[in-house]
Design a protein around this nucleic acid. Structure first.
Length: 435
DNA sequence: CGCAATGATTGCAC
DNA sequence: GTGCAATCATTGCG
């Protein structure tokens, strides 16, 4: 082996580091013979193009079978490696492309490239859920989902195709190179590098695919959002329900999450018998946000509406009271909470209590009448309020914004003790009845 | 067609 | 996260 490496050095006149060295002077006959061999080989190589095909094949075979062939190839491979490295420099190691990462992240976020292959309907569903804040867009929603999953599907099939093609091509090239490595010096490293080049090319194609997929999703998304902007007015019933709640909680028109859900549900129920779209909690939030700001901006404009709903609420409250009276006659006073659940199935009975609690000036949908009062007392109280309600209708503006503070905002807290309800303001019966 | 009403969105503040 | 304020964009009415 020592002899061999020595020979290799002398063969090309370079060391393994690629620096030329003076050819060593042969000391014995073996060296001289080897040198002669190599000279022959080199000569044969140089003249190989001048020969006929048959002759060349024969020579080639001869070279292939030459006992020094492996060593020679090994040295040549090394040289190629060194020169290749010096040419290529350090750009071999490719850092993770930030753009590719961005695209990947986006596709992942959009649910196109899920953790599982095949797009993952779940991922698409999640993405659509993330987008779908809108309410009655069930049609558009499913449309969006369908389109997105279509994109996802195309993306995945294309990706698979690319991968397959890449693998096929890579194996093909590798086989070819391995084949060729028998006739010309090709190191495994070189093959590896070639594979890397192929992969890089294919990944650039993949990047294009990802980019166009992203664009498609973006377009779809913007279209969907545009479609979402195509609002439809809420039905009259839904607006009525919302308005009822708003004006009966004018002192603190901030429905809790549960109340919003309740309202949304009620609107949906009301709508279900009509032409129907449902209303989501976020739409209820939107509605209240808009309502608050618009009411506050122009209270005068809403006066009429306020009075209207005051009357309505009064009627429902009276009905509720009537029902409650009836209820109290049939039920034991020891179970005051029984009234809240399904005992009276008036439409909107849930709100009646809300309205009543609104009358009391507290937002909380208290279902149990005030402690310290008998149920009968509280009912009388409610009756008095309801009556006072309708009385006030004829007189002064009912819904003066008592809940609004000087800064143009609603008082932040509505405690049961602080009576901020406009009803109470217009008609403070509270203390009268309780005393 | 113009305009008001209205649901939705956005940017900011807390 | 929630609410406010401004704004956008559509709807519906005269």
């Amino acid at each position: 082996m020592d002899e061999q490496s020595h020979l290799m050095q002398t063969l090309v006149g370079v060391t393994l580091t690629g620096h030329p060295v003076p050819l060593p002077v042969p000391h014995d006959g073996t060296d001289a013979r080897n040198k002669q061999d190599i000279g022959d080989i080199l000569h044969q190589i140089m003249t190989i193009t001048d020969q006929s095909l048959d002759e060349a094949q024969a020579k080639k075979h001869g070279l292939n079978c030459h006992r020094m062939k492996a060593a020679l190839f090994s040295v040549l491979c090394e040289i190629k490696e060194k020169t290749g490295l010096s040419i290529r420099g350090s750009q071999d190691e490719d850092p993770p492309d930030p753009q590719l990462m961005r695209l990947d992240n986006m596709l992942l976020a959009e649910g196109v490239s899920g953790p599982e292959k095949g797009g993952g309907a779940a991922a698409v569903a999640a993405a659509t859920a993330a987008v779908g804040v809108g309410a009655d867009n069930s049609i558009e929603h499913s449309d969006y989902r369908a389109k997105l999953s279509q994109i996802s599907q195309i993306y995945h099939t294309e990706l698979e195709k690319y991968e397959q093609a890449c693998n096929e091509f890579t194996t093909h090239v590798m086989n070819l190179l391995r084949e060729q490595s028998r006739t010309r010096p090709i190191s495994p490293k070189e093959i590896e590098r070639m594979v890397n080049i192929i992969h890089r090319k294919f990944s650039s194609i993949q990047m294009q695919l990802k980019q166009s997929t992203c664009e498609a999703v973006m377009i779809l998304r913007s279209r969907f959002l545009d479609a979402r902007r195509k609002r439809r007015n809420f039905s009259k019933q839904a607006t009525e329900i919302l308005n009822e709640y708003f004006y009966s909680h004018l002192s603190n028109p901030y429905p809790s999450e549960e109340a919003k859900e309740e309202l949304a549900k009620k609107c949906a129920i009301t709508l279900s018998q009509g032409k129907g779209s449902t209303i989501t909690v976020s739409q209820v939030s939107n509605w209240f946000g808009n309502k608050r700001i618009r009411y506050k901006k122009n209270i005068g404009k809403f006066q009429e509406e306020a009075n209207l709903y005051a009357a309505k609420t009064a009627v429902t409250a009276t009905q509720a009271v009537a029902a409650a009276v009836h209820n109290s006659q049939t039920n034991s006073p020891a179970t005051p909470s029984s009234g809240s659940s399904g005992s009276y199935s008036l439409p909107g009975s849930g709100d009646i209590f809300m309205s009543m609690s609104g009358l009391n000036g507290s937002y909380q949908p208290t279902q149990v009448p005030n402690t310290g009062q008998t149920q009968g007392d509280s009912i009388r109280h409610a009756i008095g309020q309801s009556l006072g309600y309708s009385d006030g209708l004829r007189g002064n503006p009912l819904y003066s914004p008592h809940g609004l503070n000087g800064n143009g905002g609603w008082h932040d807290a509505v405690t049961p003790s602080s009576v901020t309800s406009p009803i109470e303001g217009a008609n403070s019966i509270h203390s009268d009845t309780s005393n």
